Amino acid sequence: MTNSSAVIKTNPNHTAATHHVIHSEMLLFKIKSLQDLYKDEVMTIKDMNKLARLLLKHHSPATPDPLKQYDICQNKLQVGVYCLTCGSLPLLRSKGAWICPVCKTASKDAHLYTLNDYYLLIGSVITNKRLRWFCNISSRSIAAKLLTSLDLKQSGMQKKSYL
Rank of each mutant, 00 (worst) to 15 (best):
Q35M: 09
L37W: 07
L27T: 10
A106H: 02
V42F: 04
Y119S: 10
K32R: 15
D117P: 02
D65E: 07
A106N: 00
Y82H: 14
A62K: 05
V79Q: 15
K104H: 03
S94V: 06
K160I: 11
R140P: 01
T148L: 12
L112R: 09
S161C: 02
L120P: 08
A52K: 15
N128W: 05
A17F: 15
K32M: 15
A110V: 01
H59S: 06
D71W: 12
S139V: 02
A52V: 01
S139Q: 00
A62L: 11
R130T: 10
K160A: 02
L152F: 07
M157G: 12
H19N: 15
I142H: 09
T15P: 15
G156C: 02
L54I: 02
Y118Q: 08
S141C: 08
S141M: 12
K104G: 04
V7N: 13
Y119V: 01
L112C: 10
V81S: 06
A143K: 00
E41F: 02
S107M: 00
L56F: 13
L150A: 03
L34P: 08
A97I: 06
V21E: 14
W133I: 11
T114W: 00
S24Q: 15
K159E: 08
D71Q: 12
I22D: 14
I22S: 14
L55W: 11
Q69H: 15
C73F: 14
L84T: 07
I126G: 01
S24P: 08
S124D: 10
K57M: 07
L147F: 00
I22T: 11
S149W: 07
G123Q: 01
L55N: 13
T127Y: 03
G87C: 05
L146K: 08
V21P: 14
P101Q: 03
S88P: 07
Y70F: 06
T127A: 10
A106G: 04
M48F: 14
D40R: 06
K108E: 13
L152R: 10
K39D: 03
H14F: 15
H59D: 07
D151P: 02
V7K: 14
I137K: 00
T63E: 13
K159N: 04
D65L: 07
D65P: 09
